[in-house]
Amino acid sequence: MNIWLVFLLGGLITFGMRLSFIYLFGRFQIPQIVHRALRFVPPAVLSAIIFPNVLMPNNQFDLSLGNHRWMAGLMAVLVALWTKNTLLTILAGMAALLILQFAF
């Protein structure tokens, strides 16, 4: 599929979802169960991306000390818990990875 078509379709779907209930208001009631399920979308999707990126750097599960990414990722998790600051979390994780790469 052409990259521009991908953007166009992805954009239309995103816009459609943003408009969905604004448009349907009064015409349709969102089911309770769907309302509840939507809350789990961000943590589920984000974790599904984070885990392989951090734990499978070379497409293979690697929890050894040779894999700097899980250690840097853990650093980011701790900084996120401690500071609740997005920018600091990213900077701390990146700094940890650079230091580990430089040192080992």
Partner: peptide
């Protein structure tokens, strides 16, 4: 690596109760 880091920063504040942690 900024990508998973960005997502870690976004997901951590959401993990407030057991069902959300279990989902993640």
């Amino acid at each position: 690596f900024a990508l998973p880091l960005t997502f870690i920063a976004m997901v951590m504040p959401v993990l407030k109760d057991f069902p959300v942690v279990a989902a993640a």
